[in-house]
Design a protein around this nucleic acid. Structure first.
Lengths: 234, 234
DNA sequence: TAGATTGTTAATCGATTAACAATC
DNA sequence: TAGATTGTTAATCGATTAACAATC
């Protein structure tokens, strides 16, 4: 009843016919689909089999309108008057996001952050395999981090190839980030998540995302300051 | 020439008159202003005194149109035909973002991530003082992390008050995040940055931001998968 | 004055929301 | 059939971009 291809619903659903170009999902919707997926997997773990757009939306912190619109980019996997089957929907979102692929992640930088990321449960549990961690410091190379040993960043290209890495996380100082990033790209890895607090330049066709923790605090600061300075139309 | 209030430009500029309500800056612009600020501070460190919207935009990875529009929300601090004074603009953006306040940050969770955050240079260097770190594990309480000793999360309220904390970073498991978040809010801290992979519910007036590292990888996966499946209009 | 570059306007584009017809 | 809830449409809202008048 819920195998991805053999489900009866797949016959009715507005799935893109084989061979057709899957339509582009708007960026804002992609980001939220990952949230729905997490909520669905929580429901699944709790043994919940069916959910309405209303309650899934509430669990995800969005309006039911936004949720249904977002799901409509993926396909039409609900039943009017009834709701969505949790497992069935979860599988289809996963497929649409490309999470059925085999993602192998290497972390460059074995400082505090790099080590924390290497040991972060959330990666493995969501299907991302951490296969290597690198550092430039010879005192750190060879150390154990979780299941891994720290590789020398000098061997970056070799190790990336050997491990079949297709995603890289940069957890290194701003000063060296661009140089390492260039090597990663040259080595053929086109998906990069950077924690380095610099604007990295990458060629077209490379997907670069950035997480900047200080930026997040600065955005909080802006809102906090506004809240503290109340409407003083003196 | 560049003190925030005594500059001659402050006379001409479209600064909001004292006592008037500062206009709300759109969220997308706030996020980018933090990027401009970082670029400006890099220029400042390099001894650059003046910059055009064109080159600051390039360094920040946005169009000059977007940059000038964003700056216009802060005020009018450039000189036509000339450009912007780096230090002068940097100060005004800082002021607009509320970064001249005294921000005291506590981290809840002294696991790998919490420890990495406590030692992260980027916080201190951008004016955020990490004043406390908490954990529930008695084996961890009392340990040294950077300059700090780990406090017992049982003493959360007391320590937050004593240290004058006004921002909290949650670096703890999904299962306990909501309960701790509730206590933080009850203790009067209204700015929270969460790394826990759950949707937290907070009352109105509380600013909550989320960083989810696995979500970032999932978004990369979506784009990578699309790139790999090329235009097969077979 | 001539050249350069800002600050702002108006047009375009994308995201969100409300409402409801379709349909289980 | 009556009740419920999806999937989609159309309206609204916000963000981005291009162009240029203002002005140093």
């Amino acid at each position: 009843m819920s195998s991805l291809d053999s489900s009866p619903r797949a016959v009715n659903g507005t799935v893109a016919p084989a061979g057709e170009i899957a339509k582009q999902i708007p960026p804002a919707a992609v980001a939220r689909l990952t949230i729905y997926l997490r909520a669905l997997n929580t429901l699944l773990a709790d043994g919940v089999e069916r959910v309405s757009s209303e309650s899934l939306a509430e669990a995800s912190g969005v309006s039911s309108s936004t949720l249904r619109k977002d799901l409509s980019y993926v396909g039409s996997y609900g039943t009017r008057g009834v709701g969505y089957e949790v497992q069935y929907l979860s599988r289809h979102i996963s497929a649409a996001l490309g999470l059925t692929h085999d993602w192998k992640v290497a972390i460059v930088g074995a400082g505090n952050l790099g080590k924390a990321l290497a040991r972060y449960d959330g990666f493995e549990s969501r299907g991302f395999d951490v296969v290597a961690i690198f550092d430039a410091d010879q005192l750190v190379v060879g150390n154990e981090v979780g299941w891994l040993r720290v590789s020398d960043v000098a061997d970056l290209e070799t190790v990336l190839r050997r491990t079949g890495t297709n995603m890289v996380v940069l957890a290194l100082p701003a000063a060296v980030a661009q140089a390492v990033c260039d090597r990663v790209v040259a080595a053929g890895v086109h998906s990069i998540l950077s924690f380095a607090p610099v604007m990295l330049q990458v060629p077209d066709g490379v997907n670069l995302r950035k997480v900047d923790m200080a930026t997040e605090l600065q955005i909080l600061a802006y809102h906090a300051q506004r809240a503290q300075t109340p409407d003083q139309t003196a």
